[in-house]
Design a protein around this nucleic acid. Structure first.
Lengths: 108, 108
DNA sequence: TATCTTTATTGTAATATCACGTTATCACAA
DNA sequence: TTGTGATAACGTGATATTACAATAAAGATA
């Protein structure tokens, strides 16, 4: 049905999948990379960098925003995006811990 | 179009997204967890553990197999699945490095 | 005010994904 | 060889995702 049965999985499983799902598209990986490499990065920069149309980039940005990985600063007509480092680090640990737990379980 | 323009992204971006995409569904997180916790785990165990139908579990297993995260041992009519720890660890480092690189870029 | 820039929203077409019933396959057992 | 149990493959319906054109909204600037 294209519809995920979230209710049959626990919070940890859903949260983990929500984060990795957002990272599960090369355009979003590229967007996150580009923002991290350019201090004042707006939507047009990302359109140029990725080669995708502006609405497509905007859509991907909104997915990334949903998990609070981005901050935005309005400056005139521009919106400059940046990575929320606290959130990034939290997710880094969360995903790494997932892998480590799997590994530890296997070795019992 | 529901179709990802993989060709406009580089190998690193596509590879990273391919891994996280597979982890981007709670059923697959649950399946990986369950396999790691049970030494002799077959498809029926996963059907019971997740509450999903057998074909659905089989489909998710095949997604996880595509990135070589699983090994399988045929034993009579059973197939016992296990995590490939080398691949797991490789992916753990790859994803963690992605996060770290983003973090480092931001701090320049 | 009128216009330009930048970004978000809306609408839509094409494709992918999720879930499962049904069927096929394959190993073993009676 | 017939049946049973386990898994994969096939087919299909429902929903989600990806991508973009067109449009709207909101802030500059002439």
């Amino acid at each position: 049905m294209g519809i995920t049965k979230n209710h049959i999985f626990d919070e940890y499983q859903n949260e983990t999948a929500n984060i990795t799902k957002v990272l599960g598209h090369p355009a979003r990986i590229a967007i996150i990379q580009h923002i991290s490499q350019h201090e004042y990065c707006n939507c047009n920069d990302l359109v140029e960098a990725t080669g995708l149309a502006q609405p497509t980039v905007s859509q991907h940005l909104s997915e990334i925003k949903k998990i609070h990985l981005l901050t935005q600063k309005h400056q005139g007509k521009n919106i400059f995006y940046a990575i929320d480092l606290d959130v990034l680090n939290q997710y880094r640990r969360k995903i790494n811990d997932f892998f480590v737990k799997i590994q530890v379980n296997c070795q019992k």
